[in-house]
Design a binder for these strands. Structure first.
Lengths: 239, 239
DNA sequence: CGTCAGTTTGAGCGAGCTCAACGTGAGTGG
DNA sequence: CCACTCACGTTGAGCTCGCTCAAACTGACG
């Protein structure tokens, strides 16, 4: 579902050529099956920063895969404040929160210029009946989403500010590594406010923790650019 | 999948007779389809308090529905401490965390004498191909699990101790109401420690909050028995 | 060059934690 | 039947981590 070619925002190519397909496609899918999946996937124009893909409450009909860039999911709670529920990097699927009630419960917005693949869910369900591997893959994806949220829950309820920030950094580092990008030098696509919101901390605390990490030579930060200098210690903090 | 008859722990009856079936079964399932589902479901003997249904790391092969009693899910984090991830009441499904990695990531234990239905997941997947409504239903169940965790995330990262406790009480009240039990008088099946662990609070804080609520005539607590006296105010706190 | 959003740093405060003591009730064994 | 234990719950006192409020800095953009 995810590709790159000469231009990373080109939308004329296919799943079978996509550099990301090992990540978002069922591993065991046959060539013919990839083609059938390919047929139902819609590739959109590149999205500008701050462009919304959907808003909470809108009717659900598709899940999405990130092809390039990065996407933020968030909800607005009853008392009106934002809760960031996830950051989605290339190769990752988002929008599955909408399945349960036929409406998205989150909003999704591009944190930078991004491109995504849209996967109409009804078609995906039909195809899942014809291709059991695909059904299994989607059950697994959703289950992994559940266990991911549970780990985050544990992080928020038991860990200190430093541990939370270290965990997020290591998570992004690992996901970058999976994308064959550098695990030690990368750009944080989200603001300090988003990091804090996601981790249950204030902007000030996030900023202070990063400064402290820098002072301890665990990393170097310059605005959004990060270089991790002591992976072992950070991994230890992230535990 | 859930039933009662003369003895609530009787395990010879069928989904079609079960008082709970509107809760855990796809609403639109045909009689013939319910029978096919019924065939794959295994009903076990009643479980004693503290009996484990599965442990984290064990091979996954079934999801479960609570027929009577109550079940606690929890994980052990890397630093060895328990994190309660959920409380499951009659009519609710648990064990879906195991699908993603073919191993349970949580452990599940009976908080009191309980009975459950076991649903072998491979058979459920096969049946989902034959009965698309069932496939859809399970996608929805898992999606609701995701949005539930996200709400909890927001609760832990943004709300005070009082709001968290009120939210849990209202949640149990609503689930009891759905089970046609009293929404205002019930027994908390879990210990104060479990409540605190689940809500990211210490036992002491949970105890203090309950005492404060009682002093403000919002409720009456006696050990595990609770009577909610001011639902409006509690709902307001829970928001 | 002024504006404005995002970030950093400092100072003080408070909600919930820690530690400690005590209360309660169920289970056990003399 | 009482004494003892042990898990669980409650209450109090003091402390601490992260929050709040405030001010200053930075860089992008019109």
């Amino acid at each position: 579902m995810l590709m790159d070619s000469v231009c990373p925002h080109n939308n004329t190519f296919h799943c079978s050529d996509c550099r990301m397909n090992a990540l978002c496609l069922p591993l065991a899918l046959q060539t013919r099956e990839v083609e059938r999946l390919d047929e139902i996937i819609q590739r959109g124009k590149p999205l500008q920063k701050d462009h919304h893909i959907y808003h909470a409450g809108e009717e659900f009909d598709s899940v999405f895969a990130v092809r390039s860039g990065s996407i933020k999911s968030y909800t607005i709670s009853n008392n009106g404040q934002e809760q960031v529920t996830g950051f989605h990097l290339p190769g990752e699927i988002f929008g599955m929160d909408g399945i349960g009630q036929n409406r998205y419960t989150n909003s999704a917005v591009a944190m930078e210029t991004s491109s995504i693949c849209e996967i109409p869910f009804n078609r995906l369900q039909e195809l899942s009946i014809a291709i059991p591997t695909l059904q299994r893959h989607f059950f697994q994806l959703m289950s992994l989403e559940i266990t991911g949220e549970q780990q985050l829950l544990s992080l928020l309820s038991k860990n200190t500010a430093e541990e939370r920030v270290a965990t997020l950094l290591m998570s992004i580092s690992n996901r970058n590594f999976r994308l064959k990008l550098s695990a030690t030098r990368f750009r944080l696509p989200m603001s300090r406010a988003d990091i804090g919101n996601y981790l249950g901390l204030t902007v000030e605390t996030v900023s202070r923790v990063l400064s402290r990490f820098q002072k301890q030579d665990l990393l170097k930060v310059d605005k959004k650019e990060v270089e991790l200098l002591n992976l072992d210690r950070l991994r230890e903090l992230a535990n």
